[in-house]
């Protein structure tokens, strides 16, 4: 195999013995083989990341059907009331119970089931925040990068700098704490909190994405084909929308999509750990909650390790996936 085209070939070597059909078939076959070959170099990051992603999606779908109650089978478990009061994580019902895969959580439910159901806490809000960040980030970045020089670029850059000057977590806490403080209905409060978390994180991530798009669009701006396209009469919107963004910026967007997804998991679990006023309260399972609840378990018990591994593993997997996909599509383009 000579993928790098290093072996010396005499001119006209192939054309002597291949018919037209044979040449076409050879060409098509070569294309298919090259595509498969690219995937042959699948590195461990891509594999790991894909596994994590599939697990997350699978868990989320399973979580629709699992109601934690239904998985509890013939177990005589003493349940505590399940609510953890804000700030004091006192519930410590980590008595080990036989028969469950990972043991039970502080409420006595199966830890596996709770882990799976906890994906509900972040999955859809993460998608929302990714959507917001991608939409506004692309919009602002493309505008700033395409219409260079002049008020539009500098004002957009200023806006992005202003947004970027707040620490992201502070913005999220401000929104979540402040906006929800007056809502007294706990059910609505959780939904509102997650929604605000998603929105604020999306907005806070916009500068990062916009900067990446800005640099990419700026790089293409200087290419010749933009001039040619303009000369052909294509509108700016079409040039920007299709030629630059769709054809060339997709790897950047894909990479940041996965990064942000992982980052949202991080934020949601952190805030849930902090307490019910900031994140998801104790009655609703979340990985952060699980960690906060089990304060009497030992360092290497399942109750401590399982949520930690879940959190670290999913963030790691998504980050790796973002890296691998970004690199793969970059390579394919050039």
């Amino acid at each position: 195999m000579d993928p790098n085209n290093l072996i010396h070939r005499d001119p006209g070597e192939e054309s002597e013995d291949a018919t037209l059909a044979g040449k076409i078939a050879q060409g098509a076959l070569k294309d298919i083989i090259t595509t498969i070959l690219r995937w042959r170099h699948a590195d461990i990051r891509l594999i790991f990341g894909t596994i994590v992603l599939l697990l997350l999606v699978g868990f989320r779908i399973a979580a629709i059907f699992i109601d934690v109650d239904t998985l509890e089978t013939h177990l005589d478990v003493g349940r505590s009331s399940g609510f953890s009061t804000g700030g004091g994580f006192q519930t410590t019902n980590c008595r080990p119970v036989e028969g469950l895969l990972l043991g039970n959580d502080r409420n006595g439910y199966s830890l596996t089931a709770t882990l799976v159901e906890a994906t509900q806490a972040f999955f859809l809000p993460a998608l929302l925040s990714c959507g917001i960040a991608l939409f506004f980030g692309t919009l602002l970045g493309a505008i700033a990068g395409y219409f260079r020089g002049g008020l539009l670029e500098s004002s957009t850059k200023l806006l992005l700098t202003v947004i970027a000057s707040y620490p992201r977590l502070i913005l999220v806490i401000v929104a979540v704490g402040f906006f929800v403080a007056y809502l007294h209905d706990p059910g609505r409060a959780v939904g509102m909190r997650l929604f605000l978390m998603a929105m604020m994180l999306g907005v806070a991530y916009v500068p990062v994405l916009a900067l990446a798009i800005y640099q990419k669009v700026g790089a293409f701006q200087r290419e010749q084909f933009i001039e040619a396209a303009r000369a052909h009469g294509l509108s700016d919107v079409r040039i920007l929308g299709y030629h630059i963004l769709w054809a060339n910026c997709m790897p950047v967007l894909a990479r940041h999509f996965f990064y942000l997804f992982g980052y949202f998991i991080l934020v949601e679990t952190s805030l849930s750990y902090l307490g019910p006023e900031y994140g998801v309260p104790g009655s609703i399972p979340s990985w952060g909650n699980l960690l906060a609840g089990c304060s009497k378990g030992e360092l290497f018990s399942a109750a401590v390790m399982a949520p930690s591994v879940a959190i670290v593993g999913s963030i790691l997997g998504l980050t790796f996936l973002g890296d691998a996909i970004g690199e793969r599509f970059e390579r394919g383009r050039t």
Binding site: S270, Y273, L291, E298, L299, V304, S308, I315, L316, T319
Partner: peptide
């Protein structure tokens, strides 16, 4: 490094 701060902190308090 990719572990969130609170996981590291939690594990450290446990340790």
């Amino acid at each position: 490094s990719i572990s969130p701060v609170f996981v590291l902190g939690f594990l450290m308090t446990k340790a």
